[in-house]
Design a protein around this nucleic acid. Structure first.
Length: 214
DNA sequence: CACCAGGCAAGTA
DNA sequence: TACTTGCATGGT
């Protein structure tokens, strides 16, 4: 199924907003940590939490692994849900230690669907977090679906409002070339659009670059 | 002041 | 299977 609409919308967004330069992190580990912390949380709050970890020189695999959950919880407070997220960080760290000897480079070589299933088996990693890690930490060609994607594209009647994560993902991946750069920018552009334009309280909705109501 | 943010898991019927 | 609720800080 060759839906050109998705390509058209991508081009519109890209020419309107330009390149988004995601993910805003230097290392794979920082992407993983950021992906966990940003669950249902505004990015600026995640930045504060990560800055706290960096200030304590804790943003390395070994240091994070040694840190107590209570210490992590205390440092990541600005990102919200800090008790839950500290536990979840430990879960992914323990998984990487057990399965990959704590070496993120070992994960890079693993086939995408295999790695995706492994990530999904970790308590605290759902489909969006798994796919964010795959795409933005490991450069795997997979499309990240989030709340904005669902809302905006269901109002455009490209997906239905009761579609599941996998259904929406499948629609995007069937109509787009399997290309890491494209998937990277497209998701980032959707977030940009959703944040800056497409919300009820925002009067700028009129000047929305894809010309519709979301 | 209310609302919500780059979700997820666990509980309920 | 299909909802609902808890988790929590900080920006608008």
């Amino acid at each position: 199924m060759k839906d050109k609409k998705l390509i058209r919308i991508y081009k519109k967004l890209y020419s309107y907003f330009g390149k988004q330069y995601w993910w805003p992190a230097k290392t794979k580990l920082e992407v993983v940590v950021g992906a966990m912390l940003t669950q249902n949380t505004a990015w600026p709050n995640v930045e504060k939490a990560i800055a706290n970890l960096k200030r304590k020189r804790l943003l390395s695999f070994q240091k994070l692994s040694k840190a107590k959950i209570s210490e992590l919880a205390n440092l990541i407070k600005p990102a919200g849900y800090f008790n839950v997220k500290a536990r979840r960080l430990k879960n992914i760290l323990e998984f990487i230690q057990a399965r990959y000897q704590g070496n993120l480079r070992n994960m890079q070589r693993v086939e995408i669907q295999v790695l995706r299933n492994q990530l999904l088996s970790v308590n605290g990693i759902g489909p969006e977090t798994a796919d964010s890690i795959l795409l933005y930490a490991f450069d795997k060609p997979i499309f990240v679906v989030d709340a904005y994607t669902k809302r905006i594209f269901s109002r455009l009647e490209i997906v239905s409002s009761n579609s599941t994560y996998d259904e929406i993902q499948s629609i995007f991946m069937k109509s787009l070339r399997r290309n890491v750069y494209l998937f990277n920018e497209y998701h980032a552009l959707i977030v940009r659009l959703g944040k800056d334009y497409c919300r009820k309280t925002n009067p700028r909705c009129n000047e929305c670059p894809i010309q519709d109501r979301h």
